[in-house]
Write a protein that binds this DNA or RNA. Structure first.
Length: 481
DNA sequence: ATGTTC
């Protein structure tokens, strides 16, 4: 039975697969999409994966997915799965291999004109300063003891070492430090992979991008976020590198091996999970938090590298780079939500989804309390990125979550086959966008054609009311692995 | 995403 044909329209931007479409579903599947987006989804396993997620132990309200959905490991990317605390399932597949993959936005005091005709040079300068590529190590030498401090204390460690300024801390989700971290549950192998990778971007869809603000949708919120028309900004997209990947791999094995003892069965072993309050569940949660802290530290050290390069490149000008905000895209958190009028503590898995807490939410930092948290959504290489604000409506509908990017519509392999790198680079250069990448595959796999239309994705979440448009960014210089 | 088949 074709699942796509069974989607029931709830509104122009919200569709549902009722529980009766598949035996074992405990909750419906909730899909945020427009007609246009719907045409591009369901060609992969994502809808089937969503019905599987709807069978997880303790799954609450709905198996939710955003318009940037595509197939992932067990769970689709672009999804949210909230399970009941304390004994609902926690699943590494619901967070993903790149724990706390996320994005951070820096706002400069310089204008687009300050970079005209120098975009290529800046791309080179940043490429020289920020290590990138698969398996690539960096320039920060950590002792094993220091790595444990990074894992335990996240950006607090970076602040003490001079990689952060005090103003940065409040502008990071969870202040860049999950306090449930415990490095003793991160394997020695994972630590070995992470010890020399702090301050590196990696490969795949990870990047550093210099953009300028070309459109403001909400003047008041943009002003609060420190965003002005025509100003240059910097986006940093990366995660926990080899360390987080290893934590995910390690615990996926643990979950498969111990699931049975808790009487849990799932329709796909990639959804392997254990009760959150079991020993294995707690150990994973603590290791995941350690990897998340590593990722925040990684984006912080990259910020430091970029600030140094920026100062050197724009010598004589105002070279301050203010952190606007830093959001996690792949993470699980224990949060309070209201479900059917009842206040509940839930384990919220976000996999390729951004927290979108609205005005007044207690976890939103003071300086953004009136506006809601900044939500930063990168597009694909060469296309626009967006800054949005969290909404109260997201709390009611999507566990305070929204989309995280454009979302793939083509596999990496298919993209490699269909993209001519030379022509793509020429086309981008014609639009004054300079790409500096370490590998050819890094460019072709991330070509705009391999992704959905970011403008359409943004329109869906904006119209659905689960995030609010604030500003649009246009790329000028990109560095990739 | 990932020392891309530890």
């Amino acid at each position: 039975m074709n699942l796509k044909n069974q989607l029931v329209k709830k509104s122009d931007y919200l569709w549902e697969l009722p529980t009766h479409v598949k035996k074992g579903m405990k909750v419906p599947v909730q899909v945020y999409a427009s007609k246009k987006i719907l045409e591009e989804i369901g060609g992969d396993k994502s809808l089937e994966q969503l019905t599987n997620v709807a069978m997880l132990p303790g799954i609450t309200k709905a198996s939710i997915v955003m318009p940037d959905v595509h197939e992932g490991y067990g769970f689709p990317i672009g999804g949210i799965a909230a399970t009941s605390w304390p004994d609902g399932g926690i699943s590494p597949g619901g967070i993903g291999y790149d724990i706390n993959c996320g994005v951070r936005l820096l706002a400069s005091h310089l204008k687009r004109e300050d970079l005209l005709r120098r975009g290529e040079d800046l791309a080179k300068a940043l490429y020289a300063q920020v290590p990138s590529g698969v398996g690539k190590g960096g320039n920060i030498l950590l002792s094993e003891k220091e790595l444990d401090e990074v894992l335990r204390r996240g950006v607090q460690w970076a602040l003490e070492k001079g990689y952060a300024v005090p103003e940065d801390i409040a502008k990071i989700e969870s202040q860049g430090q999950l306090d449930n971290s415990d490095p003793q549950f991160v394997s020695e192998y994972a630590k070995r992979r992470g010890i020399d990778q702090l301050g590196t971007i990696g490969s795949g869809n990870h990047f550093v991008e210099v953009s300028y603000i070309d459109e403001i949708y909400d003047e008041e919120i943009a002003a609060t976020f420190g965003l002005k028309l025509g100003r240059l900004t910097v986006l940093i997209h990366t995660g926990s590198r080899g360390l987080g990947h290893q934590v995910a791999s390690d615990y996926m094995k643990v979950m498969v091996a111990s699931m049975g003892k808790y009487g849990i069965s799932v329709p796909d072993r990639e959804l392997a999970c254990v009760p959150f309050n079991s020993q294995e569940g707690q150990e994973y949660f603590k290791a995941m938090a350690a990897a998340a802290n590593y990722a925040w530290c990684n984006r912080q050290v990259i910020t430091w590298e970029i600030r140094n390069a920026w100062e050197e490149f724009f010598k004589g000008k105002n070279t301050q780079l203010d952190l606007v905000y830093d959001v996690a895209h792949n993470i699980a958190k224990v949060e309070d939500h209201v479900v059917n009028g009842e206040k509940k503590k839930l384990i919220v898995h976000r996999k390729g989804s951004t927290r979108s807490f609205g005005p007044g939410h207690p976890e939103v930092t003071d300086c953004y309390k009136q506006t809601g948290q900044p939500v930063i959504i990168p597009g694909s290489m060469g296309t626009a990125s967006y800054v949005m604000a969290g909404t109260a409506h997201a709390m009611e509908e999507s566990f305070g979550s929204t989309c995280h990017g454009a979302g793939r519509r083509m596999s990496r392999r298919a993209a490699q086959r269909s993209v001519n790198i030379h022509e793509l680079e020429k086309e981008l250069a014609g639009r004054n966008i300079f790409v500096r990448a370490g590998s050819r595959s890094g460019v072709s796999e991330e070509a705009p054609i391999a992704y959905k239309d970011i403008d359409e994705v943004i329109e869906v979440v904006h119209q659905a009311g689960i995030a609010k448009k604030v500003a649009r960014l246009r790329p000028m210089a990109v560095i990739k692995g």
